[in-house]
Nucleic acid binder design. Structure first.
Lengths: 248, 248
DNA sequence: CGATGCCTTGACCAACCTCAAGTGGCGTGG
DNA sequence: CCACGCCACTTGAGGTTGGTCAAGGCATCG
């Protein structure tokens, strides 16, 4: 199941220090690293520490000093915020090539992040990373572009959380997963849901029961078919896009 | 009413080209411009066009080519997104010193923005603005910091829209306004609501009726008192913060 | 002084939540 | 190999919050 989330032909020796790990990284062309030339990668490699997290393990904790940033090289991470009484909002799922650590206040991480599936990340000390900006202004420029994209996505999500009903939310979620799969040259009709219904609910501002019922409605309407608990086949992406409001 | 939103002692000649408008700008120390030395301001002044918008007038339209960025020097702006059927989510209210134009895709503005009150803005062509980055890297760095803050705020808002009930949302909204007032050295107990109930509803993911009812509940509980339709006195900020979940 | 726009309030309704029971896959241990 | 327990998910019944529809109040403005 996890393999289907990963990019095909991912190099297994990506973190072997002798061979220049970054140069062989499968997500090299997708992550922020892509702005650096091959010859510039040693500067990045010098400050990167590969880490692994098992499902449920924390990557960062709300309130921790925000000392690191991360690049996800494999697996799925969820980022979230809590209310004092435990209510949770998942602000985003992060997949390979995604960057973690953008939104941050002076007071430390304003959110938590933990592994959904077994995940591999490149950990970089924030100060080390920012020290590269002077040498590689394009890195900073890329980060700004990334922040802008994130911001646009965040606003999409406000629209979803503030104004969409359950059906529209779930449809939007599925369309997003399908589009991501397509971008990674994977079949956009066979979507994997590595996260639990509870996670999806906390992402969409619903309860797990409503998510489950909504999947059933979509199944009954023929838009989707369940293959396994975590695998969904999309029969009618157009119908889903229609529900999602054509915004993506 | 508008005056109470504005910074005290704002220089009226802020856009007089002969005197170096930016140097005399009341919000100079608050906006992104603050990273530039006085001697560097001419580069900024050369590309700035002051504009004025009456209440309800558009600043940017969803889908327009995103050719400009803006600094708000006076008044209040709302940024929003629409669903095809007209449902609206206000993603943010922008006040003086705030920057407009961060979140943007290649396809143009992903949101609309229009004046809530009469507003004054510094309009800057995007290409002109970004051309300054090479000369003033600190400007870009400031923008990145701004984007990060925005992102953190956006995530707060997801938590609000996804997981808070109406009372918590309105309380959070009021606390935010009070804190902003305090930051501008204005009485934090007398809060002005320049926007309509409909705007507040679209901002909080509620209906105008629910917003109105919630104000009434807060009034009945003694936490707030209505002075005028757009003025609210906060009697018990601690109670509001408590409802808001201590996140601000 | 009437018209208009915005807000408040009430009655009713529906979407979603809560609580609860039941299903099915999977791993473990007898 | 099968029984069991566990966990995630599904489904149902009923309740609650907030939405919908409608009426009325109260400023401002011509």
């Amino acid at each position: 199941m996890l393999d289907r989330v990963s990019v095909k032909n991912r190099c297994t020796s990506q973190h072997d220090p002798r061979t220049g790990p970054c140069a062989h990284c499968a997500i090299r062309s997708l992550a922020i690293c892509s702005v650096l030339q091959d010859t510039e990668l040693d500067a990045l490699e010098a400050i990167v520490t590969p880490i692994v997290r098992e499902p449920g393990q924390a990557v960062v904790r709300e309130g921790d000093r925000s000392s690191h940033v991360f690049n996800i090289t494999a697996g799925v991470i969820k980022a979230f915020k809590h209310l004092p009484d435990g209510r949770r909002q998942i602000t985003g799922f992060l997949f390979e090539a995604d960057f973690l650590g953008l939104a941050v206040g002076d007071e430390g991480y304003t959110y938590g992040a933990e592994a959904v599936t077994k995940a591999e990340l490149c950990q970089i000390r924030r100060t080390d990373f920012e020290a590269l900006f002077d040498r590689f202004p394009k890195l900073e420029r890329r980060l700004l572009a990334l922040a802008r994209d994130e911001l646009a996505i965040a606003q999409e999500k406000m629209l979803l959380l503030g104004r969409m009903d359950a059906l529209e939310r779930v449809a939007t979620f599925l369309v997003g997963l399908a589009d991501r799969a397509a971008r990674f040259d994977m079949p956009a009709t066979d979507v994997v849901l590595p996260m639990t219904r509870t996670d999806i609910a906390d992402y969409l501002g619903l309860t797990l029961e409503t998510v489950s019922r909504t999947f059933s409605r979509l199944r009954n309407s023929g838009s989707i078919a369940s293959v396994g608990r975590q695998d969904i086949r999309i029969n009618n992406i157009a119908a889903l896009r229609d529900l999602a409001g054509a915004t993506g």
